[in-house]
Design a protein around this nucleic acid. Structure first.
Lengths: 344, 344
DNA sequence: GTGAAAGCGCTAACAT
DNA sequence: ATGTTAGCGCTTTCAC
């Protein structure tokens, strides 16, 4: 039954040829059945189908991808799959995928550092895009241009004006909103914990912080700006740094919720209460912060994933995009009101 | 610079041939450089490398996969990517990936139903496995056998004794532990909310429930067993059902934490307090239940992902597996003690 | 050290 | 309705 050719001990898997030979038809007929073409006699088709079943044949993705255009596969490329932002994006993309005709292939090297070390982002994108998918979504890409002919949409790109469509939250506006809220409460000494400065999104949040102070005539004190990297650990570090200043800030605005969580921990350690002793606001709304009643700026990350997928599908179907940039609105979520503060 | 051949408007992407022609060498030489073979003159190599850089060439995964064995790619196949169990598995796999030489490709059709509808699980597994990866991890597979020659490891398989290595939690033991805890507290009327009965894991949890009652001489009342499907919604439904019995259970054990969350919501609605009015325990430990202080049975899902990946790597490297089944120990986590209860 | 040629498994254009 | 043929882009003998 199984054609073994020569005495190689390598187990070969069953190919379209095996099916064709067993069924006594040509390879192309099998291919036609496989691809649902109509011009195949019903009985031939059924015969082939049963042989396929018998042999447990299934198509070779690689081979197929080489020949045909449409692959019904979308690639999602992320540096790391296990951090909150990535997971939220995936949820959104996944939802769009479920509603679509496409399947999803998520690619990751598991770790930002490993990826950077081994080879460039460009390589992976091209790999997935040119080879086996109809288009790709890239999270936080660093390059401003990719020379592939496949559709590409990015989420939270590092560059402010990349040459590909992109999706991002209104980081500046959200940051402004948070600050206006705190300032409106009477705060004048507001600490800021910065995120990964290589990301445009982080810089926009910082700008929001600075501009809000400026517009309200509050002098910017560099000692109140701590630099973190979006992890809870640096949140702890920066929280300690800010809260142990002789002239402690009356409020802290963290550039993401993970770092806000860190500050929260420090506050507990130091016996400081929120909001009595100081106010705390965090960007993002994905971590435990919501269970702690923290005030946050929600950037609707999963909507960004969903939106990116929608854009991509449009491009693939050659529907012209109205805008190259999709802005997902941020929203200030006040859970437990922050402390009102007025200088004595 | 770009070879366009005929006047097709289809943009072709740059191939190994383009590189070869531009560099004035043969395709095979370029291939040698690409694959780090040693028998290439240093200057030829550098020349080709710079051309590759100029042209922005990157290899076609599909084509390469067709020819060579080792792909340094692991496939993870999941019916759906956006539910807590899946995410936890991914985290664990991701961690193992980050420590390894492999990259990860997660495949999903986004929705269990869609997947079942379009085509069989077998097809997707074979697709990924035979085509482009060195081995696959499958979450909650339904078939007990796969005819592929690539390594495969499953997590929480539906069958109790599949013909492939598998990883799962000690569901029965965990369930017993939770029940012994509740019974030890004096409870006699303990409600159970069942999960998806097609999963072996769910059945084991139910067995644990039944056996614990039996061993302790407590009669099993079928009215106390409600059937859910692991979603919060059915948790709500079953919670209502159990809590509105005339003879209300004094404790409820939900087959996963999502459903326990649902019961928690119902309790709030009905004005019932936990643990004063009744005790609540949930299997799993991944949802918000931990912030609500619920008692849970942790099944260490991400460890299951990590373990599966370790097993897979062993198989790929042809290290014999000691056991075909990896059992990850469950652990009862008592957050806020449940109510002690003694029949009057 | 390098090139020519075969062929991986498949699809699609062209025959019949 | 089915078979024949020509590649897709790549790796890998086997020559030279």
């Amino acid at each position: 039954m199984r054609k073994t050719g020569n005495m190689e001990n390598q187990r070969r898997s069953v190919t379209i040829r095996d099916v064709a030979e067993t069924a006594g038809v040509s390879v192309s007929t099998v291919s036609r059945v496989l691809n649902g073409k109509v011009d195949v006699a019903k009985e031939t088709k059924n015969h082939i189908l049963s042989i396929i079943d018998d042999l447990g044949y299934s198509t070779n993705l690689a081979a197929r991808s080489m020949r045909s255009q449409k692959k019904n596969l979308i690639g999602l490329i992320m540096p790391d799959i296990a951090y909150p932002f990535a997971i939220e994006v995936m949820k959104g993309v996944n939802r769009a995928i479920a509603e679509s005709e496409f399947d999803l292939l998520v690619y990751t090297s598991g770790d930002v550092r490993k990826r950077g070390r081994v080879t460039s982002e460009q390589k992976y994108i091209t790999l997935l895009a040119k080879s086996i998918s109809d288009g790709v979504i890239v999270v936080a890409p660093v390059a401003s241009e990719y020379n592939i002919d496949k559709p590409i949409v990015s989420i939270d790109p590092v560059m402010s004006h990349p040459n590909y469509p992109s999706v991002h939250a209104t980081n500046y506006e959200g940051s402004r909103a948070a600050m206006e809220y705190l300032i409106g409460l009477g705060h004048k000494r507001i600490g800021f914990i910065n995120g990964r400065t290589e990301l445009e999104s982080a810089n926009r949040r910082l700008s929001g912080y600075r501009d809000a102070l400026k517009k309200n005539g509050i002098p910017i004190k560099e000692e109140l700006i701590a630099s973190g990297d979006y992890t809870t650990e640096t949140g702890v570090k920066c929280g300690r740094q800010l809260l142990s200043l002789k002239n402690r800030p009356t409020a802290i605005f963290a550039s993401n919720d993970q770092m806000a969580m860190g500050v929260y921990q420090v506050a507990e350690e130091m016996g400081l209460r929120i909001p009595e002793d100081f106010s705390l606001v965090g960007f993002d709304n994905i971590s435990e912060s919501k269970y702690l009643g923290l005030t946050t700026v929600d950037q609707f990350i999963s909507e960004q994933g969903y939106g990116a997928m929608q854009m991509l599908i449009q491009i693939i179907n050659e529907v012209p995009l109205e805008k190259q940039t999709l802005k997902v609105q941020t929203q200030l979520v006040v859970r437990s009101s922050c402390r009102e503060y007025h200088e004595s």
